[in-house]
Design a protein around this nucleic acid. Structure first.
Lengths: 347, 347
DNA sequence: TTGTACGCGTTATCAT
DNA sequence: ATGATAACGCGTACAA
């Protein structure tokens, strides 16, 4: 690999001139600039990003931690982040939770790993860290933004949809279609995003005078297998092993999809026997059978804005940043009219 | 941030001693080593990976290019790669295709971007590059391994399942269940992996005396929307707008899932009216309705071995590397017995 | 065993 | 406008 010294020598100038000519910063005579460019071209010169990093005191790397790479939710974030980063000439060091330990420990390990790689900034998505973990992290490493969660005292550095509002939306969608006997497959009980959407969902239902029976609440965990198991448990709890609810809200699309599948194997049809509404509007939601009606949360926009704020913090730029990411309902085939009269309007 | 100089000063030794004590290479008196460790601990010293990289002439970064982050196939690869990398203290700079241009151009851009970040090695997954592109890439940058494709003359650096064998397997599965009127939704016509699986599929069918009618071949492109469209086209081509085939092979699970959904909306039931077999055994395949019978290709193992070979090449290690990744059939609910007598045995 | 000094490739400063 | 030179933080050869 040729260095800037080689370029300078071939061009017949000093390294300073070569550096300025190549970077465009500082003044160089047209003549010299041209010779440097030619020399660089002939040598196939590429600046060493490592040496640049050492000299500039920044690596250009943004560390990104997500619990896992697969799953429509996080991979969509990743794509969005890469897009923003690349436009601005930065790159991503990506890590997901791996190895042994609890989800929280995996997150801590992954973040620690990232911290050791000299990242200029950190982009974090984790609902397994405690608020205290996050606060401590912010203290040690202020150039950080959290995605998909709110951390007390750090609203500026947190980007998320309002999951409570989104949860209310799901409830409104169901009651607007005339459902009242409603079952729920919840996400992990200590995940902040799950709790927020459940809080909103139940609150809106309560506002409509609807209470969800305890037997109609089943705990999942944002995973296919748990969604399927939860769905089976829900119908098993009904009389004669038939569901005694007409609608089902799953805390994410993965579980909604798994629930539809499990329901199908039990002989209960979606949407004829029970309507199902999901959450996230994952890439696949339009292509299940039936296509999934779901709460759309614009996670790509969330990630992009979070990334841009981080970039501003790291590189003194002034990229535009959105703060509001209103959820909507993606109406598809898995929710149909229920037996009761509609309450309110279709959101 | 404190540097090794600070540590050395606090420990009352020279930087050389501090460096040796911290790295474990070279000899240091127990006494000095202890003082250095203590000093490092008190200072919260973290070596600058950038300075290390400049000195050692390697960054510890492996560049990974995949066409996209979402989609079960590539994200599963990513997870597998990160797992291997992290165990060995290396990290991943991940890039996916973004910006304008053809898929091929995106790949070329992404790779070029990675090359500019001083990666020690490159892990590539792309079926949009031509063989010539790959060969040229290997010439310019030998420390590279291709995932999920074979490049002529570079078998050593390519890791993939044998898609032709896997395609044959799909055919055998269908005929073993008594299907003969078979339709196909193909992937992108110039993607090598798609071509190989189609070649195998048609060859095995031919060996059984079965020919696929031109009207029963529909071109998709590894995407939901194309799978759905292809399925609609297939039934539209039949008499009375009903399918005149009893089984359908989709070149990947995404399209299989979309096809099942589209078929459902047209009133044709899976598997009662037509059996569907997918390809990949994506994470979601067990949770569609009905659960998808599919060709399982162990892409995680492929990625892990490819990654280990690359690590060996980059860091003179001797990690174990597998070369054979036999595909199997994951039997689930989307394929049932067809009208003809079985040919051969269930693979 | 130890400390000093040099090299890694770049950018930035500063006389010229 | 230009070129020499000093950082940047680390590993390591070498002399002691």
């Amino acid at each position: 690999m040729s260095t800037i010294k080689d370029v300078a020598r071939l061009a017949g100038v000093g390294v300073g001139t070569a550096s300025r000519a190549l970077s465009g910063r500082g003044s160089v005579s047209d003549d010299a600039a041209e010779r440097v460019r030619a020399a660089a071209g002939r040598l196939g010169y590429r600046p060493s990003s490592i040496a640049q990093a050492l000299s500039l005191q920044r690596s250009g790397a943004i560390g990104v931690y997500v619990p896992l790479f697969d799953g429509a939710f996080y991979s969509e974030m990743l794509g969005s982040i890469d897009r923003v980063l690349r436009v601005h000439g930065r790159h991503m060091i990506a890590a997901n939770g791996c190895g042994a330990g609890s989800p929280r420990q995996k997150a801590l390990d992954g973040i620690d790993f990232l911290l050791g790689r000299d990242c200029d900034g950190l982009l974090l998505a984790s609902n397994s860290l405690t608020d205290e973990d996050c606060i401590e992290l912010f203290r040690r490493f202020p150039r950080m933004v959290m995605l998909n969660r709110e951390v007390p005292g750090h609203a500026q550095s947190c980007f998320s949809v309002d999951h409570e509002v989104a949860g209310r939306l799901a409830a409104r969608a169901l009651v607007a279609e005339g459902h009242r006997e409603i079952a729920v497959i919840e996400g992990p009980p200590d995940a902040p995003d799950n709790r927020a959407r459940m809080r909103g969902f139940f609150a809106e239902l309560a506002a409509c005078g609807i209470a969800v029976r305890p037997a109609h609440r089943s705990e999942g965990g944002f995973r296919f297998s748990l969604g399927a198991a939860a769905a089976r448990a829900l119908v098993a709890a009904g009389p004669l092993g038939r569901p005694d609810f007409t609608a089902l809200f799953a805390a994410n699309d993965l579980m909604a999809m798994a629930a539809v599948s499990a329901l199908g194997e039990l002989g209960v049809r979606v949407p004829q026997d029970v309507s199902v509404i999901g959450y996230d509007d994952s890439r696949f939601a339009g292509y299940t059978s039936p296509p999934l009606t779901t709460v759309r949360v614009p996670i790509d926009a969330v990630a992009a804005s979070g990334c841009r704020l981080l970039l501003n913090a790291c590189y003194e730029t002034d990229l535009p940043v959105e703060r509001s990411f209103p959820p909507t309902i993606a109406w598809r085939g898995s929710v149909i009219r229920g037996p009761h009269s509609p309450l309110g309007e279709r959101p």
